[in-house]
């Protein structure tokens, strides 16, 4: 039985063990060889290596989130430039007017002006699949479809259309 002050039952003389048996049991736990002096140094070096490894690992653990935080700050600041419009105005929506055309808008029906009649003509050509080439690819997506019709129609209703035609 282990009791306070008697860390090993071999030292308990109340067990009434014969002294020879007790000595033999104690001998079981004695080092058979002397510990080499270099062994402590090796253990110490191993401990130091482990400590350095842990330190590097902690550094990496902090470095990655810190980089992410810096990127987030840059992103927020960068987005801030888009959120704040000129002259104190605030625009949270990117769609404030008709998008600029990729190519100059054309007078599709040849009447000398770009208006809703051009959109109508283009829409009919698109619906009839009567489109050859990318002459009317006004939004620059390499296909002539309803998106180009919308581009023409939105150009026709722009308040500053004189500036774009």
């Amino acid at each position: 039985m282990i009791e306070p002050g008697k860390p090993h039952f071999d030292d308990d003389d109340r067990m009434g063990l014969p002294s020879a048996l007790r000595a033999a049991l104690c001998d079981l736990h004695r080092p058979t060889k002397p510990v080499p002096t270099g062994f402590d140094k090796a253990v110490l070096a191993a401990a130091r290596r482990e400590w350095l490894r842990q330190r590097r690992r902690r550094l990496v653990i902090w470095l990655v989130p810190a980089t992410a935080a810096a990127a987030a700050i840059v992103l927020v600041v960068w987005l801030g430039g888009f959120w704040s419009g000129p002259a104190g105005s605030v625009s949270l929506s990117p769609m404030v007017s008709a998008p600029p055309s990729q190519t100059p808008l054309k007078d599709i029906n040849g009447d000398g002006q770009v208006d809703i009649l051009d959109a109508l003509m283009l829409a009919r050509r698109v619906e009839a699949a009567d489109i050859a080439g990318l002459e009317w690819d006004f939004n620059g997506d390499r296909v002539v479809d309803r998106g180009d019709v919308d581009t023409v129609a939105l150009a026709a209703v722009r308040l500053d259309r004189e500036a774009v035609q």
């Binding site: 809703i116 939105l154 026709a156 722009r158």
Partner: peptide
């Protein structure tokens, strides 16, 4: 709703247009 320039909102002038095929 017809086509219009969103910039016309909060102004007093707008150009409206629509078509139907």
């Amino acid at each position: 709703p017809a086509y219009y320039d969103p910039a016309a909102l909060t102004h007093h002038r707008v150009i409206l247009a629509a078509f139907c095929t």
